[in-house]
Design a protein around this nucleic acid. Structure first.
Lengths: 171, 171
DNA sequence: CTTGCATTGGTCAAAGTTGGTCAAACTTTT
DNA sequence: AAAAGTTTGACCAACTTTGACCAATGCAAG
């Protein structure tokens, strides 16, 4: 079994036994536990705990720093989930993005206020930097996907009655 | 938990139980209480009790000297205006952006749900394309500005539409 | 008064503690 | 082979903690 797979299942096991919908871990600790380079952890996170897989990652550097992994439950039957999978993909042109947002709004999949925020994020004004259009499309897709996941997560948190966690909150 | 966090919450607890909206403390006393260097107190003050966080600091040296921490109240939209003008600029690093969002949230300038959406939009995950960090910082600033302006517009629209009603019941 | 000095806070840079990125080397799959 | 996926290490960035040195204030001795 590959190292990455071991680390992946170790983390998933942690997620499974966690009471919250997210866990915190120390990159260096985990790397030492698996006798590997710390950057191996980043590799696992970036290949197996991406938004595509339904995870969100937050981290802090410096003393007391840590990595937080949050699971976003997505059901294949969910309309929004379907749209993210089938429509967003890895590249979104501006017209495609606008159309998708309109459809999401009229079908009540997301709130108009959320749609407005997403539109603002991926508007030409926001992406007015000198990079190839192709890359802007990739950016649009990533931003759209990440924001839609956040919307899904909020809705789920409301259902459970729990408050969303953000890493900046200190105890 | 980080020492700085402990000191921060200790001070905030003091603020909470104070009758005034300000407290006085002795730097050396506090440092001794937490078994740390006195300058650690300055670090906490300069990273967590700045005007951006809604606090003002006054101090006096010499015998009987002390540090006074005062909470300043500003209207949410004014604060938002100020932060957009003074803090977003044309370049925003990821830590700067996160800090700004946290400040906007705790000062009630924006809702946590909006903050979460903005955070998703400008997160490293969303901006994971092969362009120089400089350009990502420029992107972050543009996206942040555009989204915050959208939030402002929404709030102002709500305000206009409900002037006769009782709104803004925030604690 | 003036001066000395004890007391109290301020600044800054170095060291310490975390995590992030990227490209080269290596391994497995096609 | 070639392509795709994995592993590692050198270098970078962010945040915290500490300590040496500086500045201001009040008070007491001269």
């Amino acid at each position: 079994m590959r190292l990455s797979d071991s680390i992946e299942s170790f983390i998933k096991q942690m997620m499974g036994t966690a009471e919250e919908d997210g866990i915190e871990l120390r990159r260096n600790e985990l790397a030492e536990y698996f006798h590997c380079a710390p950057s191996q952890i980043n590799y696992v996170l970036s290949t197996r705990f991406t938004p595509d897989h339904g995870y969100m990652i937050e981290s802090r550097r410096g003393g007391g720093g840590c990595i937080r992994i949050i699971r976003v439950e997505t059901s294949p039957t969910d309309h929004l989930d379907y749209l993210i999978r089938e429509r967003v993909g890895t590249s979104l042109t501006e017209p495609e993005a606008r159309l998708l947002l309109r459809q999401l709004t009229v079908s009540n999949a997301i709130e108009p206020t959320d749609a407005a925020l997403i539109a603002a994020a991926i508007s030409p004004t926001s992406l007015a930097v000198p990079i190839p259009e192709e890359m802007k499309n990739a950016l649009r897709a990533k931003i759209m996907r990440n924001m839609l996941l956040t919307v899904i997560r909020r809705v789920q948190a409301q259902h459970r009655g729990t408050t969303a966690l953000i890493i900046q909150e200190r105890k």
